[in-house]
Amino acid sequence: MKHMDPNFRKDTKTEFPQREELKPRKVTTPDGQVIDIEPLQDYFCQEPPKVHQKSYFKIVEDFYNWCRAESLWILAFGTGCGAIEMRPLMTPRFDAYRYGIQWRATPRQANLLMISGYLSVKTLKRAIRTYEQMQGPKYVVGLGSCTINGGMYWDSYNTIKKLEEYLPVDLYIAGCMPRPEALLAGFMELKKKIKAGNAEGANKYAEKFDWYKANQKAVIKDWDMPDYNW
């Protein structure tokens, strides 16, 4: 077994000093005006996300859910080694397009965020930003054992262990790494879940927003973005 120093204590006292460029300050514009700059202020909207109701009629909601399930747009954002298992899905051998699965280049247009493998704390920050910029209903799939329990990075100082503490995960696909066939099977499971109306991750995120934010801020020491990135 790996040796562990029983006396080692993590430094919990030191706070990360706020970065110079993030501090509120006054700036003189080229035409001599003095304006206040608050880099952490989101000028679009400071509201937390809110829970979105389902359609009033069940049949309409079911139809919408069917459409959502049959048109999964994946954000092409690879965090770890799993990103390389997604590319074969576009090739003739696996051809995910026939299931209505497509890749989009921008979070605004994507519905499905694949966390493909280990997530370092630094990448987690970007993943949270990306997830919040997506428009609901949105789904998160964790790929590989790294997102489930740390996987082979179980003793790493800089990778997270349980993804669902930071983002509302709809589905895990186990493996190290899962083969593209496993990914396809996972997509089919996700489709079933969406069609049954159980994939309400975005609403869950809005409901337990404070809990998620507390977890996120516990590992991300230099929080340099608004609480919710619209």
Partner: peptide
């Protein structure tokens, strides 16, 4: 041509409805 099965012929309609059915927009 590239040896794939390709998208379903009615995929465009699904994508359209899906996009209209998104719950949040900014």
């Amino acid at each position: 041509v590239s040896g794939r099965y390709g998208i379903r012929i009615y995929q465009n309609y699904i994508d359209l409805v899906k996009n209209i059915a998104l719950r949040s927009k900014i």
